[in-house]
Every structure is written in C-alpha cells, then in structure tokens.
Simulated assay, not measured.
Amino acid sequence: MTLSTPKPDVAGPPRPDPRAPFLVMAGWYGVLVASYGVYLGSLSGDVPAGCGEGCDSDRSRMLLFGLYTATPALFLALLISLVALWLLTTRGRTRSALLVGTLAAAPALVVAGIVAAIAPPS
C-alpha cells in the first residue's frame, strides 16, 4: 500500500480568518460610541436660567437625539456592515484585515457623519 501525495488546493490559498476584520469593524463602532460619549461629556447639564419647566439642558437634548435618532441609524448601519463584511470576506480578494474591517465599517462612518450634520446645535 502506497501513500498518495496530497492533492494541491485548486481553489487557491485559504481565506484569512474572518474574526480579525470583524474585530477591526467592532473597533470602529467602539470609536463612534466613545466619541459620542466624549461629546456628551463636553455638553452642559445646566438648564438655561429663566426658562420654565419646558426647557432641557443641552446634554439631555443630545441624549434624546442619540436615543431616538442615532441609535436606530447606528443599528441599521451595523446590519449593513455585517452584510458588507460577509461579502468582503467570502468574495473579496483583499487579504488585509484592517482594510476589510474598515471598508465594512464605512456605512457606520457615513451614518455618523450624517447624524453629526443634522444634530441639533448646542
């Protein structure tokens, strides 16, 4: 009985581990959430003087804006990013985890730019 030699891989080199691009993408999402937290920390929590009970502070207005506008937009961007990550890792030719993760996070970065543009001024 002779041992057969291993057959060469016809499909090409093995695909890189998809966890690394996912971690890069998750890192971009973490940067977005942390930058929003830093921005909230820079806002004043004081209600303007002489304004009745109907007034809110800048921080509470941005918290409500984040809850009702930014969070759903970021969730939608996350769903799009996961699909893009899947497409880039299964069908893409790029082998760089940093590039694939950043390209997958691009919808979130675009959404963050749009949300920052329409955010109520403080």
Rank of each mutant, 00 (worst) to 15 (best):
T2S: 10
L3E: 14
P6I: 13
D9G: 04
A11L: 15
G12F: 12
P16Q: 00
P18F: 09
R19D: 08
P21F: 12
P21R: 04
F22A: 15
F22Q: 10
L23M: 14
A26I: 12
G30V: 03
L32Q: 01
V33I: 12
V33C: 05
S35T: 14
S35D: 14
V38P: 05
L40G: 04
L40D: 06
G41N: 11
G41M: 07
S42Q: 05
S42P: 00
S42W: 00
L43M: 10
L43Q: 10
L43P: 12
S44A: 11
G45S: 08
P48A: 07
G50W: 05
C51G: 06
E53I: 15
C55D: 01
D56S: 14
S57I: 02
S57N: 05
S60K: 12
R61D: 06
G66S: 09
L67Q: 14
Y68P: 00
P72T: 13
L74H: 07
L76S: 13
A77H: 01
A77R: 06
L78S: 12
L78P: 01
I80Y: 02
I80M: 11
V83R: 13
W86H: 14
T89E: 05
T90S: 13
G92H: 11
G92S: 08
T94M: 04
S96Q: 07
A97H: 04
G101V: 01
P107I: 03
P107H: 02
L109P: 02
A112D: 14
G113C: 08
I114W: 03
I114Y: 15
V115I: 15
A117L: 13
I118R: 02
A119S: 10
